[in-house]
Write a protein that binds this DNA or RNA. Structure first.
Length: 422
RNA sequence: GUGGUUGUAGCAUAAUUGGUUAAUGCCCUUGACUGUGAAUCAAGAAGAUGCGCGUUCAAAUCGCGUCAAUCACUCCA
């Protein structure tokens, strides 16, 4: 029996795992720089939490959750998204009691039992943030800006930002009545009618040309926004403009989770086929209260690491040079091996990646391995060096040899290696 | 979940259209080149028809099933 990974899970192993790591760290950097703090959360929660939080009418809850009974007879679900679990933790530990907004980030895997294809996995990876307890439109814009700068830091260009506002409860209710009225007058097939019954907004997202055509005439939620909601949305746009973040207003945007209100956004990549959403999020006015917390608002996003990686590969911008080895030490003989191990130990605290050539390979084969692995510098230490007290430091990219005395070797290497652009 | 396409060594391709030992390149090891990489040449090692059943004298090749990947829809990160 030859085992294989369960259907639809993404696995990352070398060399591509470096690309994955680079994506995750790059997306996380602007988040940390904006003062968000880590929330390390369980990947499973009480099933009821997701049913209430994500929304009973969503596909995510209805047909995509990994739900099972644990040994104590509890119904457990593998998290299909991050916001609800994060808020549960915030409420449970009173994290919204300090100064607001309270700002958190998380990263990890999520689970949805969908039919997989490239960019859509049953276990996928996201980084997300939540900012809780402020309705300042500047916060909306900053949250969007953080995601935007993450994608830009990856070097992505072929993507765009779509935003809309879902307004407040009253706006949505009024719109829904008219939209349902409009849809009921259309001549639709049964499965489409069924979808519309669950959530009439879904029809805005239909890929079929004839439906798109019909929906052109449908009432648009933006036209139903209350004056306050509209003013708020305009302020968000104003801040995005000051930050020079390009965006498109997409009044037909549909999000699959029930809790979104107000500002809602999506980052769409143009080279990924059908699975083109690389990130998205929005504000959630009633969610905290819905799952047992105070009635305060919040806003957040989730960015797909798997898809961001696919996008970066499609654009040819993946950069894993940060993971290159700075120095390979090739010891020849037992004394030299001890020396090499001490040298590596002394250098690594200076944030240098230092490897030792193990296994008593020939210098030639060690050099070959260094070349193939993208090592920046190499030194060979043997009896000759140990007795003469002189070592040659070889830069692989140029082939240049630089001499150093054994006694000043650590200092020389720290200086040489740190000077190289990483 | 619905429909389509594709599965050959670690990777990438080939195999007379059903024909006998499934090939080549890359990768790996060694040498030419006593302790300094990429090129070239030589030698060597290991390794595959996703899985199952069927048709046939004979299956990588045809059929059915299954598993997986992939594409579109549904949906979403």
């Amino acid at each position: 029996m030859r085992y294989q990974a369960p259907k639809g899970v993404s696995e990352y192993f070398p060399p591509r795992s470096q690309s994955f790591e680079w994506i995750r760290e790059t997306l996380l950097t602007p988040i940390r720089q904006a003062g968000y703090q880590l929330l390390e959360l369980p990947i499973f929660e009480d099933t009821e939490l997701f049913a209430r939080g994500v929304g009973a009418s969503t596909d995510v809850v209805n047909k995509e959750m990994y739900t099972f009974e644990d040994r104590g007879g509890r119904s457990i679900t593998l998290r299909p998204e991050g916001t609800v679990g994060a808020l549960r933790s915030v409420i449970e530990h009173g994290l919204d009691r300090g100064s607001l907004p309270a700002k958190f980030f998380y990263s990890g895997q999520f689970f949805r039992a969908e039919r997989p294809q490239a960019g859509r996995y049953r276990q996928f990876y996201s980084v997300g943030i939540e900012a809780i307890g402020s309705d300042d439109p500047a916060l909306d814009a900053e949250v969007i800006a953080i995601a935007y700068s993450g994608f830009r830091a990856l070097g992505l260009k072929a993507f765009h930002l779509e935003i809309t506002s879902l307004g407040d409860k009253a706006s949505r209710a009024a719109h829904r009545i008219d939209l349902v009225k409009f849809i009921s007058a259309l001549d639709l097939d049964k499965s489409t009618i069924d979808r519309a019954e669950i959530n009439p907004l879904r029809l805005f997202d239909d890929k079929r040309a004839e439906i798109k055509e019909l929906m052109l005439q449908a009432p648009i939620l933006l036209d139903y926004l209350s004056p306050e909601s509209l003013a708020n949305f305009e302020q968000v746009q104003g801040f995005l403009n000051t930050l020079e973040i390009p965006f498109r207003i997409n009044p037909r945007m549909v999000r699959g989770l029930d809790y979104y209100t107000g500002t809602t956004f999506e980052f769409v990549h143009e080279m990924l086929g059908a699975q083109s959403g690389i990130g998205g999020g929005g504000r959630y006015d009633g969610l905290m209260e819905e799952i047992g917390g105070r009635d305060i608002t919040g806003i957040g996003f989730g960015l797909g690491i798997d898809r961001a990686l696919l996008a970066a590969e499609a654009e040819g911008v993946v950069d894993t040079s940060v993971f290159l080895t700075d120095l390979l030490v090739i010891p020849m003989g037992g004394d030299a091996k001890s020396f090499a191990m001490r040298l590596a130990r002394d250098l690594r605290p200076y944030n240098l990646t230092v490897e030792i050539s193990f296994g008593d390979r020939s210098v030639k084969s060690a050099m070959k391995a260094a070349d193939k692995g993208g090592v920046k510098y190499v030194i060979v230490i043997g009896d000759a060096e140990l007795s003469s007290g002189l070592v040659e430091i070889k830069q692989m990219s140029t082939g240049t040899l630089t001499s150093s005395t054994l006694t000043s070797l650590v200092e020389t290497l720290i200086e040489t290696l740190s000077a190289t652009i990483r």
